[in-house]
């Protein structure tokens, strides 16, 4: 495939558009993100744009491509994805506290934290499904949706287990809490790795 001209959008792949960029464009993008301008000049010397930017003749060089996600991860999606994690982690810790202390209040805490994780998990799953509906089920977006789905279903089963009285929650509740918390962490990692506004290539 012929390399497109600077600034041109390659529409052959609608879901993951490739955009070439020049040093100048890269600088502006990087500056907007508050990142350091690195390794983009032909002499290989790292310079921060504030102190020592590229020479004028370098400014229009095509230096790379940005993979443009068609709809960058929304702050909302990121927020619910992030909010789910500490709730499920907290449920795990509280279940462990009940397991080791027999103090019932820990089990009540675990119930509520699981319920909270399910609320945010449901919204995160919904966001992932909307992404798929818009951009197609491929690669990481499908992985994320499936991870969130499994997390949520197991979390819901865990909520039902936590509806049992006293020690009837154990040991199933603790085991499920561990699995759900780990799945929530993996979901968040996959989400934040994949669902970013643009990645250099």
């Amino acid at each position: 495939m012929a390399r497109p001209a600077a600034g041109e959008v390659n529409d052959a792949d609608a879901s993951m558009r490739l955009r070439t960029f020049t040093v100048d464009q890269a600088l502006r993008t990087c500056d907007a993100r508050g990142r350091e301008y690195m390794s983009l000049t032909h002499d290989g010397i790292q310079r921060s744009p504030a102190e020592n930017g590229p020479k004028p003749r370098e400014r229009n060089m095509v230096v790379g491509q940005i993979r443009m996600h068609p709809r960058p991860v929304g702050r909302f999606h990121a927020f619910v994805l992030a909010a789910m994690v500490p709730l499920f982690l907290g449920a795990w810790l509280c279940d462990f506290a009940y397991w080791s202390s027999h103090q019932i209040e820990w089990s009540n805490f675990a119930s509520w934290l699981t319920a909270g994780g399910l609320v945010f998990g449901a919204v995160a799953l919904l966001c992932a499904l909307v992404d798929i509906a818009r951009a197609g089920a491929r690669g990481a977006s499908l992985t994320l949706a499936l991870l969130l789905l499994v997390t949520w279903v197991l979390g819901f089963i865990n909520a039902l287990v936590h509806a049992r009285d006293a020690w009837a929650v154990m040991p199933t509740g603790l085991i499920l809490s561990v699995i759900v918390a780990l799945l929530a962490c993996v979901s968040a990692f996959v989400g934040f790795t994949h669902l970013r506004a643009g990645a250099m290539s």
């Binding site: 509906a133 818009r134 197609g136 089920a137 789905l149 279903v153 819901f156």
Partner: peptide
């Protein structure tokens, strides 16, 4: 269409959750 296919996948996942719960 491609968009229709994507919607179908999203809906299928949602239905799978509902059935699993029921």
């Amino acid at each position: 269409t491609q968009a229709g296919m994507r919607c179908a996948i999203a809906i299928a996942i949602a239905i799978a959750v509902a059935c699993g719960l029921a």
